[in-house]
Computed example of a mutant assay.
Amino acid sequence: MLSIDQMAYCNAFKNVHPLEKGIFAASLLFLSLLLKNAASAFFIFMFMSIVIVKGAKIPVLYYIKLLLLPFFFLCTSVLVILFSIAPVSMEILNIIFQIEIANWRIYISVDNAEQVLKLFLSVMAGVSCMYFLILTTPIQQIIWLLQKMRLPSLFIELFVVTYRFIFVLLDKMYEIRIAQTSRLGYFRIKQSFYSLAQLIISIFVKSLKTAQDVQRASDSRGNNSGQFLQVEIQQPFNKRNWLIIGCTVFLTCFIFFLGNHV
C-alpha cells in the first residue's frame, strides 16, 4: 500500500461523512472551473491547501511533493499560451517582454500573461480540490459516493480494480527498479534503456497475471450480479461542516464579484 492510500485511511477527516467531503470538493472545483478568476482561484487553492495540511493533518512536505507533478506539466503547457510570434513590422501593444530573431518577434503581452495566470491558478485550484478528496476519503467511502450517484455497477467495479491495480503495479515497479539498481542496471545509458525495457515488460506481464487472478477470484465467488461492492456508511452528518461548506462557497463568490468590480 502506497502513501496516498495510507493518508486516506490515517488522516484527521477519515471519519467525516463522505457526502460532506464530496460536496465540499466538488462545489469548489466547479467554482474554480466556472469563474475562471485569478483571485477566487487563488483563494480556493490556498484555502484547500490549508484544510489539507492543517485540518486533515497531511504532512506539508508530502503535499508539496504531490503538487510538483501537476505543477511541472502545467508550466510546460502554458508556455505555448504565454509566448506569441509575430513579424517585426507588426505593431503590438502592451508588450512585457520580447526577443527579435531575424524578421520575427517572440513576445509576451499583458493579455497573454493575464490569461496564463487565470489558467494556472484555476488548474491548481482544481488540483487542490481533487487532492483533498483523494487524501481524505478511503476507497470504501468513494465507492459509496459512486453508488449514491447511481453509476452503473460495471463502472464502479472497473474503478475499484483500476484503483487497486495502480498501487499493486507501482509497488512491483518500485521493487523491480531497486533490484535493477542494485545490479548497476542504470549505470550506463545503454544499460539504462535495456533495464527500462525489461521493467516495462515485467510490469506488463504482472498486470496480466493480476487481472487473471482477480477474474478467477471473482468467478469463484459467483460474482454475476455485480453487487459485491455494496457499501454502507455509518458516519453521521455534521451541521458545522455544512455551514463551513456554505460559507466557503459564499466567500468564493464574493471574492469573484469583488475582484470584477474593483
Rank of each mutant, 00 (worst) to 15 (best):
L33I: 13
A197P: 05
L2G: 15
F204G: 01
T181K: 12
N238M: 06
L28A: 00
I23Q: 06
G222M: 04
Q215S: 12
M90A: 11
P70V: 00
L251Y: 06
I64C: 14
Q147M: 10
A102R: 10
M90C: 07
V160Q: 06
K57T: 08
Q180E: 03
C253H: 10
F47G: 00
L133M: 15
S128G: 08
N11M: 05
L61M: 13
E175G: 00
V116K: 05
A211L: 09
I95A: 02
Q212K: 13
D219G: 11
Q235N: 02
V116G: 04
G185K: 04
I96D: 05
H17E: 09
R150M: 14
L67I: 07
L145Y: 08
L154P: 03
K21L: 07
C129P: 11
S192L: 06
I106T: 06
N11R: 00
L2D: 15
C10Q: 14
F165Q: 07
K172M: 13
L243E: 01
I95S: 01
L146W: 01
W104N: 08
W104A: 04
I108N: 07
S3H: 10
I134G: 10
V161R: 02
V16Y: 13
F97T: 01
V60T: 13
S220K: 03
D5I: 04
K172H: 12
F159V: 07
Q198G: 15
V205Y: 14
I245W: 04
E100K: 04
Y174V: 01
H261S: 13
L66N: 14
G222N: 07
T248S: 06
S195M: 03
K190M: 12
I139G: 12
L34Q: 09
F254T: 12
D213P: 09
F45K: 08
M173K: 03
Y62R: 14
Y174R: 09
V123D: 02
I99M: 02
N103W: 03
A197S: 15
N112Y: 02
F47C: 08
Y9D: 12
I58H: 08
S40C: 07
M130A: 15
L229V: 08
